[in-house]
Design a protein around this nucleic acid. Sequence first.
DNA 1: TGCCGGAGCTTAACCGGTCAAGTTCTCCTG
DNA 2: CAGGAGAACTTGACCGGTTAAGCTCCGGCA
Lengths: 349, 349
Amino acid sequence: MPVKRPTIADIARRAGVSKVAVSYALNGQAGVSEATRRRIRAIADELGWSPNTAARALSGASAYAVGLVVCRPARILGVEPFFMQLISGFETALSARSYGLTLQVVASLEAEIEVYHRWWAERRVDGVILVDLRVDDPRVPVLEHLGLPAIVIGNPRGAGRMAGVWSDDAAALVEVVDHLVGLGHTRIARVTGLPELLHTRIRDEAFTAACSSAGVSDFRLVAADYTGESSASVTRALLSSAAPPTALVYDNDVMAVAGLGVAQELGLSVPRDVSLVAWDDSPLCRLVHPALTAISRDIPAYGAHAAQRLLAAIGGEPVSDFQDTTPHLVVRGSTAAPSPHPPPPPRPL
Amino acid sequence: MPVKRPTIADIARRAGVSKVAVSYALNGQAGVSEATRRRIRAIADELGWSPNTAARALSGASAYAVGLVVCRPARILGVEPFFMQLISGFETALSARSYGLTLQVVASLEAEIEVYHRWWAERRVDGVILVDLRVDDPRVPVLEHLGLPAIVIGNPRGAGRMAGVWSDDAAALVEVVDHLVGLGHTRIARVTGLPELLHTRIRDEAFTAACSSAGVSDFRLVAADYTGESSASVTRALLSSAAPPTALVYDNDVMAVAGLGVAQELGLSVPRDVSLVAWDDSPLCRLVHPALTAISRDIPAYGAHAAQRLLAAIGGEPVSDFQDTTPHLVVRGSTAAPSPHPPPPPRPL
DNA sequence: TGCCGGAGCTTAACCGGTCAAGTTCTCCTG
DNA sequence: CAGGAGAACTTGACCGGTTAAGCTCCGGCA
């Protein structure tokens, strides 16, 4: 038979005091003597008591949970290590304060907004973490209207009054372009993530600016969608073009690995015939051969910072934007000086 | 200013009935006329009402949430697409019935058990999904003692009275071995996942049996831990040995990709010099070149089935084990007949 | 000696639902 | 035309916490 869950009434009975005395004792509030407090704490430990979150949420305001809605189709979601790393970062900050994380995967922005409405009405979460901010993001006004505390992962530009935890992607792209230019590359292409995402636009601008200021006039931006398939087809087109780029910069790790696969399939040697750079240095980048030069950042730390700030916001503290450490380039085997001889014509399929 | 959340008292006031009439109307229970029910439903919609989960959980028994604890270090967790796919499968079944998913990442089995205790005492979840079942798993008796409904992902052998959703890994391994033997391979190695996991043991036994019955006497089992690093070092050792295997079967996609990287690094050509097979056919397997022959299963569906059964168990229905569709082999470019000439000696590093 | 203040409690009410047990009122039946 | 059944409600209590307000001492001070 299932065990009975202890309540503060059980503790009160055992200690010979009222429920309220127990509540005061266990919450560290004034109103009970030190001796009583210790006695009550001991009994609570002995019974293995934890506060019933439902009861707490009902009287107090707090559900002791924060929410994360992820709106990418399952096929994209699975492959990219980014989310799981981010989530495990959240956890370290949340579990330290006994907050739970409620996760929901949805298929569209409308569905995501509906989830926020529901969570708010259900009092299921005390706040949410917003990812994949878009240009003119419709979620921002909704959350502000509901008064649901929120933290944005990414550049807070366009996040309304909500605070953001972000990193200086522009500086990282300058480092990438400088690295490539330093090796002698003059034709560089960037394979981007979903164009509607704000950080894609920001990186596009930064890449353009970095190329201009480094004197690279022959650069290209090509849109993909974070999937290996999209990257493969885009990469195939780029490398088969008349004057193919000598270096490719991808917006995530998965696309970079796919790009490497395509290059090998076309009979090109990396890095001799083409150099590749990945954004987000996951273990994936070290798995393949040659290992990928990549932009590295500490994603779990990033997540932990965001969660900490969200908890502060929930606690009513004023929270401002936080710029996390700037991503830096890790050079590996996939970048080198471009070969002086043009690569062989791509092998027909 | 934040909007006010509507409650059934608000609805009752508007409709000129009691709170209880509203509760009956909205829950589809007898006790109100059809006309009243419609009127109440309309008002509830207009106000954008959703039940306060805390209040519900407090009176009824249900928290309308299920829990998932994942106990793998963040570095492993991130790379493997498996979990995210499984989770998105859960979601489809859970969100259809307005259940939430509470996720927690922990570092050890003890911590995981503590989480179950806390969740139970806090009434945070109605049931849990158990992954990565181990030999003599200590979590099983704990959950049975607490009376927390649970479903096991994986072979229910050793899951006590709990039901499991599983697939016939043994049959899949027979298919793999037959495929390789059919191509002419006679020296086959299996690079396994964490040895303490029950499904690793089950697959080990199945692989051994499959080799024996296919007449392969020169087979090996080598333990790794799902990470690319472990796979790389194990693969390097295997391929550099005196009589290297001509085919390698990996226990996940990440290890197979790492194995491919090592083979290329050693100057071996896949599939000419060595054939590779991955377990779990993620997009990763299609990204690399050559694309990996892999054992494929529908992970989201797997997750959805598990969640459905958990909801049934929470509802008090008897739930029995469910054998999902058997994983099948998808043949791609990484397997072929072994070359008649021995591969060149591995290139020194 | 009387009064005030505070420490250390208790009592009562509330959060927003659910459920058991009434209470009407109507309608059917013998 | 009384009596019983059932439909359509309401009242009251409860889940397990929190918070505000009240009550008792006891000690200190005028």
